[in-house]
Design a protein around this nucleic acid. Structure first.
Lengths: 374, 374
DNA sequence: GTGAAAGCGCTAACAT
DNA sequence: ATGTTAGCGCTTTCAC
């Protein structure tokens, strides 16, 4: 049928040493191929393959292994992962979808992911989807490149990307933000606990009328921090605090939301923001209104981003271990790639309260102390 | 064992909806293959290939194109870039080697690179080599994955990575830092011009005794900014300024180098730092010595990193268009991939002086003005 | 322990 | 305009 063999064409013409510079195709620099190594070492390419793979080198006699390794070395051979991946269906590649590289939390997360994956010889394909623009398209391209899994730092409520990942059966880990339905493993800061630490701190300073400057409520950070704030207030025996919702994690949105918050409730002595940038926005609004921080109003942030210790006043905030979140996320993803049907784990990293100068004893307590003649 | 299943399993010839969890091999989720699409559409796979590729769809009759596209759609077919790449030797993949994701300049650079590459359907493989640890190894892994080129943000003097790239004939672009020998194309901020703007600004404020807080001299930024500083001083008719060299771009190193700088030369009224973090370190040292900024000593930075407008006093600095550096770098790399033998271009992005409150009229000028009874 | 042969999924001559 | 054929470079049964 198809296999009517012609005269024996067993000879494989070796590729020319210097491939003639083709007109239009870019002359990609290529090293030696396995076939060439095998030929030079006088063995079959399958033998060479086995000899060079630590997993299978045991099948081959030590002297052959040595010889092949030697010729490979001298020919500058590098295993072509592309071809190997096609054959084995293992690419050792994962994709990472980032919502906003402008936000300084993502760089250390990426660093953590990269470091943890590199330890397992995996590589990271970075895709950036500012304000979710064509995130789905980017996801598809990661799949087309046979990423073995993806890390999503972008998840928000009813995220189509997340749905698509599930639909594809693609190993996926959420990072920084979680899926409210817990369908996928996630690594997030312990947002509720962070807000609890903040509220406790403020209450300890004598504050009773505390407002929350909330982040966008379609992201888990915004939602959970708002919840954490209210439950900590309740726990402290205080009434639910007033809330101003910012529509983005920016200083400008923080300023605007603080305006609303201050208008909503008179006599606020402290503002717990869902994020450092929001807190900095709050400080601006306060000073614009002639209020001092922390004299009149204490302010707290969340994230401990670089330089918030140098602003005036230095910001009391919650430190998040972003690097560690990245590492854990990578670890989880590798676990999920290995066993995709294991139940999705939720990891929360512990927050740490960093007390600086933007929080102080509440004006009431100070007045009282003063009255006591201290 | 636990899984002694009862009746004979019904035969499922098609791949099971839920792939049975295999013992060790990860069940990678795969879509339809081109062959399957071709079969379903009743054409040969090469025809299907041509029909689905916009470049070659012209060769195929419109109705066949439509039919193939339809079946592809309904089967959820996605071209496997891995296989295509193996065949065509074009991966549309580039690697990016980053020295320090902790430094906030690199996130926007990465964003720029990613955005520019995505426009050409290229993807970015990110490798992180903090303090150059195994940078060479990372480079090799990028090559093994057949990256068509690399963007190095890591280059320093006599960089082995750079040498290896040249040796491999791998299309390479340097970013943020340049190769002193100009063997490779590079996109950098115009460091000399930036320092010139700074010095002019300070001289305009009446400063005459200006010191330079230099960065590491094995990176082009450190070197060029120091050179730019001195040549601008000369241009302004001033003597060479004293220099304190920091051994890293950190606040701590900036503090230490400022100590040395202040000890070297009495009567300094301004410090031009090579970088914002160094400038912040300088401010610390000044305040530790009871000197006020800008009252006694003016300070300038370089980069305009996030939040330096919020520190006290807000930092006068040079704004670098990091995002644009990334974009230009990507553009250059694509050009180099297309024609590797073109002469290496050097692009410098224009700096912009951002005047804030860390610089003020020199004490001498102020005293004079005062004496004049103003 | 090693070689032979098949094939991962795709594209690109070379035929018609 | 479409089908045939031959690989890209590698791994992996299956034989011996």
């Amino acid at each position: 049928m198809k296999k009517l063999m012609t005269p024996p064409p067993p000879v494989r013409s070796l590729r020319p040493d210097r491939p003639a510079p083709s007109e239009v195709a870019p002359p990609v620099p290529r090293g030696a191929t396995l076939q060439q190594v095998a030929d030079a070492a006088g063995v079959h390419r399958s033998t060479a393959s086995r000899a060079l793979n630590p997993e299978t080198a045991g099948m081959i006699s030590p002297d052959v292994v040595a010889r092949v390794a030697g010729t490979a070395q001298s020919l500058g051979y590098r295993r072509d992962m592309l071809a190997a991946s096609l054959r084995t269906s293992r690419t050792r590649l994962v994709g990472m979808l980032l919502p906003d590289l402008g936000n300084p939390v993502f760089a250390p997360i990426l660093a953590g992911v990269e470091a943890a994956l590199a330890e397992h010889r995996y590589a990271v394909l970075v895709a950036h989807a500012p304000n979710d623009a064509n995130a789905l398209e980017l996801l598809e391209s990661l799949v087309a490149r046979r990423a073995e899994g993806v890390i999503l730092a972008t998840a928000h409520a009813h995220d189509p990307v997340l749905v698509r990942c599930i639909e594809l059966g693609l190993p996926t880990v959420l990072i920084n933000r979680a899926d409210p339905d817990r369908r996928l493993p996630a690594v997030t800061p312990d947002d509720r606990e962070g807000m609890r630490l903040v509220v406790q701190h403020l209450v300890g300073l004598g504050h009773r009328c505390i407002g929350h400057l909330a982040g966008p409520q379609d992201a888990s950070t915004g939602l959970l921090r708002a919840e954490g704030f209210q439950s900590a207030m309740k726990e402290a025996g205080l009434a639910l605090g007033p809330v101003g919702v910012a529509d983005a994690y920016t200083r400008e949105a923080g300023q605007a939301a603080t305006e609303r918050l201050l208008d909503t409730r008179q006599g606020l002595t402290a503002i717990a923001a869902a994020n450092d940038l929001l807190a900095l926005g709050a400080m601006r609004t306060l000073s614009a209104r002639g209020l001092s921080c922390p004299g009149d109003v204490s302010v707290t942030g969340h994230n401990d981003m670089p330089l918030v210790d140098m602003v005036q006043p230095p910001l009391t905030t919650i430190r998040i271990l972003h690097d560690r979140i990245g590492r854990e996320g990578a670890r989880l993803l590798l676990a999920r790639i290995a066993s995709p049907d294991a139940p999705p784990v939720q990891i929360r990293t512990p927050p740490e309260l960093i007390v600086r100068a933007s929080t102080a004893t509440s004006p009431g307590v100070r007045a009282l102390a003063l009255a006591k003649g201290e």
